[in-house]
Design a protein around this nucleic acid. Structure first.
Length: 507
RNA sequence: GGUCCGUUCGUCUAACGGUUAGGACGCCAGGUUUUCAUCCUGGUAAUAGGGGUUCGAUUCCCCUACGGACUACCA
């Protein structure tokens, strides 16, 4: 196989959604698997759709995800520039090459004229197509005399360059995922290749750039499948068939409920992020949530995404980036769209969170504490981590599960109070406080033994004592084991909380 | 409307002519547990429909239905 070179080529028209991240991921995995190169090319040939910040967003998202590029708009490379607007000058000559070999032509029809034609056709329940059937009745270099064309061009008349689709020809696209896809050329239309603003359209730019950048495989979304025959035709018209990349059209990511492809709105509607990072729309100010800010680990995010449309063929589901690279294969990419499942995303995150070493968890929790303005010693933070990491799905859960280690409860759950707070409770708690006072070994195990033997010796109910203790320590019926809580809190704090509860709840 | 692509438990998917159609998430039940989780065990649940081909179809072919993408001087 020739050197593998693949690209991710987004358009900077807004935030990249998770479908785009998955496309980038599969390209990345493919490149690494085959020891090839992976590059980032920005396809910004539509100046009217430019959104400030979108390009940076794309770069930052992929960086966070752990998807790395070898070449690209942000790091340069031997085929720079990697932003199509910076390559503007070079497309014209390629368009001219097609004009010269008569596989493309100038068209002078105005957008208004074409719009009128479309309306007209529509009123007759037909669809207007600028193509073999209609092109001879329109204003272009096929119908105008050579002189007229020359005059128009010299007069600076607006024009576009359109590809000349053959009349009746079967065009075959070999797709790595779908096999042979063939289409009759008369169904294609004479797509614009070069716009009147001097920019190429996607069709021209992607073919020219893929050729110039020696792209070996085009791995992109299924929405491109219908125009793939046009791209194949362009390679032929340019005489680049021998260097044509192989194509793989990825199935779509579908919304979790109902049908249709996942859209920006679904996230807000169903309460999960569709974007890797939080995005604030520069125009409307509208904010869309991101995986990073919602508390997902990039490893979990990537693992989940990788399995949406691909699987290794084994029953292993937890896969690191290195394992994904090792196992990835285009043959195992499915053909049908995948509905995104937010529940499974959480499950992945829970798994990765629990597997993290305590030091890492401490780092995550430490950041939350700083944000909350809570001052806690590293030792305290670290000792809390093993107790809570298996109880958290998302990073913010770390706080939900541990706040009482850092700040005493200010209220007590009424239901629990009703159930366990009896007239004799203060006396009982005082005896436990005495017990703690005499206790030197404050390890969880020692405390557990001490409390349990106290319960046993006094013939008390396990549930009663433990739940009452829990209530006064954390304010309700939640949290890790009571002995573990006391161990982390320490003698002074535990006793103080007992006193406070007695004072607050009284008799 | 036209073209193209697709269709296995609710969801992600395995099985590339012969399996009691497997796994995971979710859900339900049981166990562990001082609470809530975690964890462990078990259960629930699928080949869209109809025709072929074949000794035998989830698997190959056709039709139907359903879904999706595309159909711009957008990508």
């Amino acid at each position: 196989m020739k050197e593998v070179r693949v690209r991710f080529a987004p358009s900077p028209t807004g935030p990249l959604h998770i479908g785009g991240v998955r496309t980038a991921l599969y390209n990345y995995l493919f490149a690494r698997k085959h020891h090839g190169k992976f590059l980032l090319r920005i396809e910004d040939t539509d100046q009217t759709r430019f959104v400030p910040g979108a390009e940076n967003y794309i770069i930052e998202s992929l960086q966070w995800s752990g998807i790395q590029f070898d070449e690209g708009v942000h790091i340069g490379g031997p085929y720079a520039p990697y932003r199509q607007s910076d390559r503007k000058e070079m497309y014209h000559q390629y368009a001219m090459q097609l004009i010269n070999n008569e596989t493309a032509y100038y068209a002078f029809d105005t957008p208004e004229e074409l719009e009128a034609l479309r309306k007209d056709f529509e009123s007759r329940k037909e669809t207007f197509q600028y193509g073999p059937q209609t092109r001879m009745g329109l204003r272009n270099s096929l119908t105008l005399s050579e002189n007229d064309v020359k005059t128009l061009l010299e007069a600076g008349e607006h024009y576009v360059i359109r590809v000349r689709i053959p009349d009746h020809e079967t065009i075959v696209v070999q797709d790595l995922i779908r096999g042979l896809v063939s289409v009759d050329s008369h169904l294609l239309d004479d797509k614009v290749l070069y716009k009147s603003d001097g920019m190429p359209t996607y069709h021209l730019a992607n073919v020219v750039d893929d050729y110039l950048m020696k792209i070996s495989h085009v791995i992109r979304g299924e929405e491109w499948l219908p125009s793939a025959p046009l791209h194949v035709l362009l390679y032929r018209y340019f005489g680049w068939e021998a260097d044509m990349p192989e194509f793989a059209h990825l199935p779509l990511l579908l919304k979790p409920d109902g049908n249709g492809k996942l859209s920006k709105r679904d996230g807000d509607r169903l309460g999960f992020p569709v974007f890797p990072l939080r995005w604030t729309d520069p125009k409307s100010g509208e904010v869309s949530s991101g995986y990073r800010e919602s508390g997902y680990l990039p490893e979990a995010f990537i693992n989940m995404l990788a399995l949406l449309g691909w699987n290794p063929g084994t029953e292993q589901e937890i896969l690191s980036m290195d394992e994904l690279i090792e196992l990835f294969s285009i043959d195992r990419v499915g053909k049908s769209g995948s509905k995104f499942d937010p529940e499974k995303a959480k499950w992945f995150n829970h798994h990765y969170l629990s597997a993290l070493p305590d030091e890492k968890i401490a780092g995550l929790l430490g950041k939350i504490l700083i944000d909350k303005g809570i001052d806690a010693t590293p030792v305290l933070i670290l000792s809390v981590c093993p107790l809570i990491k298996e109880r958290a799905n998302l990073i913010p859960d770390l706080w939900e599960q541990s706040w009482f280690f850092f700040t005493p409860p200010v209220s007590y759950d009424e239901k629990v109070v009703q159930k366990f707070w009896k007239p004799e409770t203060p006396a009982l708690l005082n005896r436990i406080s005495d017990l703690l006072k005499k206790q030197d070994d404050f390890s969880t195990d020692a405390l557990d033994i001490a409390i349990k033997s106290f319960i046993h010796d006094n013939e008390l109910g396990m549930g009663l004592v433990m739940n009452t203790l829990r209530l006064v320590l954390v304010g309700g019926s939640f949290g890790p084991g009571v002995a573990a809580i006391i161990s982390v809190l320490g003698k002074k704090e535990a006793q103080s909380r007992i006193e406070k509860a007695i004072a607050y709840l009284g008799n």
